[in-house]
Computed example of a mutant assay.
Amino acid sequence: MAFTYRDGDGSDADPASRVATGLRIFVRLAHEQPYLGKFIVRFGLTSESLRGILVDLPMRDIEDGIAAGRYGIGGAGIASLVVCMVVSSLWMVLEGHRG
């Protein structure tokens, strides 16, 4: 599964925008398809293919953002932060929390 997110003018979107949009897509998906959201929360980090969606794609965007100067941080720890943020957000939506 691969997504291409572009700005309105057709250029590649800002890496920070791609990360934020990806998070919103996953949270919206969990809200609209709760069974799929529960599956991602429960098995998302145990299956290598699911882990690739939750870690590899955002990490590429984060690395692009670091290279472009959009983030003042670096390292692999940021990938863990993003994955935890996605899983936590999905869990909160599935539990009925609204923000």
Rank of each mutant, 00 (worst) to 15 (best):
Met1Leu: 10
Ala2Trp: 01
Ala2Tyr: 02
Phe3Asn: 01
Phe3Tyr: 08
Thr4Gln: 04
Thr4Phe: 03
Thr4Gly: 05
Thr4Met: 02
Tyr5Thr: 02
Arg6Ser: 08
Gly8Ile: 06
Gly10Val: 06
Ser11Leu: 09
Ser11Gly: 13
Ser11His: 13
Ser11Val: 10
Asp12Gln: 14
Ala13Ser: 15
Asp14Glu: 14
Asp14His: 15
Asp14Lys: 14
Pro15Gln: 04
Pro15Cys: 06
Ala16Cys: 04
Ser17Asn: 07
Arg18Ser: 04
Val19Met: 10
Val19Leu: 14
Val19Arg: 03
Ala20Tyr: 00
Ala20Asn: 07
Thr21Cys: 04
Gly22Val: 01
Gly22Phe: 12
Leu23Glu: 10
Arg24Glu: 13
Arg24Cys: 05
Arg24Leu: 14
Ile25Pro: 00
Ile25Cys: 07
Phe26Trp: 11
Val27Thr: 11
Val27Ser: 05
Leu29Thr: 12
Leu29Arg: 08
Ala30Asn: 03
Glu32Val: 07
Glu32Arg: 14
Glu32Asp: 15
Glu32Leu: 14
Gln33Pro: 00
Gln33Phe: 09
Gln33His: 14
Pro34Met: 03
Tyr35Val: 02
Tyr35Asn: 11
Tyr35Ile: 01
Tyr35Arg: 14
Tyr35Gln: 14
Leu36Gly: 10
Gly37Met: 07
Gly37Val: 06
Lys38Met: 09
Lys38Thr: 01
Lys38Asp: 08
Phe39Gly: 01
Val41Ser: 09
Val41Trp: 04
Val41His: 10
Val41Asp: 08
Phe43Ile: 00
Phe43Gly: 00
Phe43Tyr: 15
Gly44Gln: 02
Gly44Phe: 02
Gly44Asp: 02
Leu45Val: 11
Leu45Met: 14
Leu45Thr: 14
Ser47Met: 09
Ser47Ala: 10
Glu48Thr: 13
Ser49Phe: 08
Arg51Val: 01
Gly52Asp: 05
Gly52Met: 04
Ile53Ala: 07
Ile53Ser: 04
Val55Asn: 05
Val55Ala: 11
Asp56Arg: 11
Asp56Pro: 00
Asp56Val: 06
Leu57Val: 12
Leu57Gln: 10
Leu57His: 08
Met59His: 15
Met59Thr: 15
Arg60Leu: 12
Arg60Asn: 12
Arg60Ser: 14
Asp61Glu: 15
Asp61Ser: 14
Asp61Ile: 02
Ile62His: 02
Ile62Arg: 03
Ile62Lys: 04
Gly65Lys: 03
Ala67Ser: 13
Ala68Asn: 06
Ala68Tyr: 03
Ala68Met: 05
Gly69Ser: 03
Arg70Lys: 11
Tyr71Val: 01
Tyr71Gln: 00
Gly72Val: 00
Ile73Thr: 08
Gly74Lys: 06
Gly75Ile: 06
Ala76Arg: 12
Ala76Ile: 09
Gly77Ile: 05
Ile78Arg: 10
Ser80Ala: 08
Ser80Glu: 12
Ser80Gly: 15
Leu81Pro: 00
Leu81Met: 10
Val82His: 05
Val82Tyr: 12
Cys84Asn: 15
Cys84Val: 01
Val86Glu: 05
Val87Ala: 13
Val87Asn: 05
Val87Tyr: 04
Ser88Thr: 12
Ser88Pro: 01
Ser89Cys: 11
Leu90Asp: 01
Leu90Ile: 15
Leu90Thr: 02
Leu90His: 01
Trp91Ser: 11
Met92Arg: 13
Met92Cys: 07
Val93Ala: 14
Leu94Asn: 07
Leu94Asp: 04
Leu94Ile: 09
Glu95Ala: 13
Glu95Ser: 13
Arg98Cys: 04
Arg98His: 11
